[in-house]
Simulated assay, not measured.
Amino acid sequence: MLPPGLLPEGLRDLLPPAAEAEAKLAAALMAVFSAHGHARVSPPLVEYEATLGSRLASPARRELLRFTDPVSQHTLALRSDITGQVGRIACTRMAASPRPLRLSYCGPVLRVRGDQLSPERQSLQTGVEIIGADHEAAALAVLRLAVEALATAGIEALSLDLTLPDLVAHLHAAGLSAGEASLATLQALLDGKDIASLRAAGAAAYEPLIAAAGPAATALPRLHAFAATLPEAAAAVLAARLAPLSALVAALDGTPGLSLSLDPTERHGFEYQSWLGFSLFGAGLPSEIGRGGSYSLVHPDGRTEPAIGFSLYLDSLVDAGFGSVAEKRLFCPPDTAPEAAARLRAQGWTTVTALAPDEDPAAQRCTHVLVGGTPQPLTVTAE
């Protein structure tokens, strides 16, 4: 028999005031997105497994919690990400809407397993997508929006880590020698920054990509120097990535509280992103608080469409104290007139009207008590 109140591993109850902080934080972020013209959509928590994320051109094979629908007898799955659902909406119900299509969302997601840095399996995900564009201007718009939203949430020091998820695949397709290594092996060696194995496999031509990881101010010149050494086809591939990337770094450089870094071969978590990917980290927070990039959507008729966006995960922010607002909680005696309490609420108070004369205001997290019709600090006791 399970102990009372026991929850599955990686799941938790959010109690006061954390649940309130999460709601306020989500509302603040969504207000920023709305102010930038992103209309909210709200896809369901559960979909048919076969269609969940199917609109992404390179869908990640995510671990999903599955079960059989007793009505249709089809396999259903709980979403682990909302981006694919927004893509489905854009390609079906909003296929005729003018582009670029600016959408936002907020809702819970569930993954089968957590990890050491993020053991939680359920989280609240919010974000935006621009459907119909993934060029430099669209990328700059979503990056600036992500930075602004997190600044609104109270994060003063933010790290933006940029990557080029499909660069290695395109260099390989352009004929840059990888020796005996397959593309999958090459990507794995670059993921592990395994220079010795790269050389042993005859793929030393990709080694400069490892050296080009670090602060953007030093990484970009190294990438430009690398491009100058490449054969014509491979050089054209890298140049096509470097031009918009350099422009983005130049546009964001000097943003207060923002540091920029680059790892051109980072692919972990960027399974369906194309020319650009990025992660967001807050100072003092143990794991990433956001991720995004460019990708392609596939319409039912096979047509592809560019898109770009980002997702933010609120759990670590709430755990770190973001979203908490000092409330003015006013404890009112049981005989307080409803009209008087309403006037106090209009003045910004949160009112807690006692249900019995012996109710403890401190137990209700009240900061003030209503004494003779006037709010007094809790330390002041009525006669």
Rank of each mutant, 00 (worst) to 15 (best):
E148Y: 04
L176Q: 03
A283F: 08
G37I: 08
F281Q: 10
T218A: 15
E156G: 13
A141T: 02
F331Y: 09
A217H: 14
R55C: 08
G321K: 07
S197P: 03
P108V: 13
Y272L: 05
A178C: 01
L230D: 06
E120Y: 14
L78S: 04
H299I: 08
H368E: 04
A217F: 11
L45D: 11
V318M: 06
R79E: 03
G321Q: 10
L2S: 03
L124Y: 07
S197A: 15
G214N: 01
R303W: 00
M30T: 13
S58W: 05
D358K: 15
V318I: 12
G5L: 00
T218N: 11
D301P: 04
P100Q: 00
Y48L: 15
A346C: 07
A50F: 01
L140I: 00
T229Q: 07
P221K: 09
A28T: 05
E207S: 08
D13K: 05
L314G: 04
A151F: 05
Y206D: 07
A342C: 00
L242H: 09
V41R: 11
D166F: 09
K193L: 10
A174L: 11
M1S: 10
R343T: 02
L140V: 02
A354E: 01
G10E: 06
A90T: 08
L56R: 12
L65F: 14
H135V: 01
R365Q: 14
G132Q: 01
Q85G: 12
L160R: 05
S246A: 14
L370Y: 01
A21K: 06
T304E: 07
I130R: 03
V142W: 02
A204M: 05
L260S: 02
H135W: 01
K328G: 01
L140D: 00
G87L: 00
V128L: 07
P43G: 04
D301A: 10
G321M: 04
L252N: 04
A356N: 11
G175D: 01
L29N: 05
T218R: 13
V32N: 04
S58Y: 05
K328I: 09
P357N: 14
A151S: 11
V298L: 07
L78Q: 09
E383Q: 13
A141Q: 08
A50P: 06
S118K: 14
A174K: 06
P44S: 13
E339C: 04
P70L: 11
A213I: 14
A181W: 02
Q122M: 11
A217K: 15
G373D: 04
A28R: 10
T229N: 02
L230W: 06
V112G: 08
A340K: 09
P17R: 03
D315K: 15
A205N: 06
I195A: 14
E129A: 02
D315N: 15
V147T: 08
A217V: 15
L317T: 14
A141D: 06
L124S: 08
T304C: 02
A39F: 05
V112I: 13
T381S: 10
S261K: 07
A239H: 11
T92E: 08
G254D: 01
P264T: 07
K193A: 12
R199C: 14
G5N: 08
R55L: 08
F331V: 03
W275G: 03
P98E: 03
S261N: 06
H224N: 13
L370E: 03
T336N: 01
T367W: 09
F67P: 02
R267M: 10
V41M: 12
A178S: 13
L110E: 10
V71Q: 10
P334M: 13
H368T: 05
P17E: 02
I308V: 15
P4W: 06
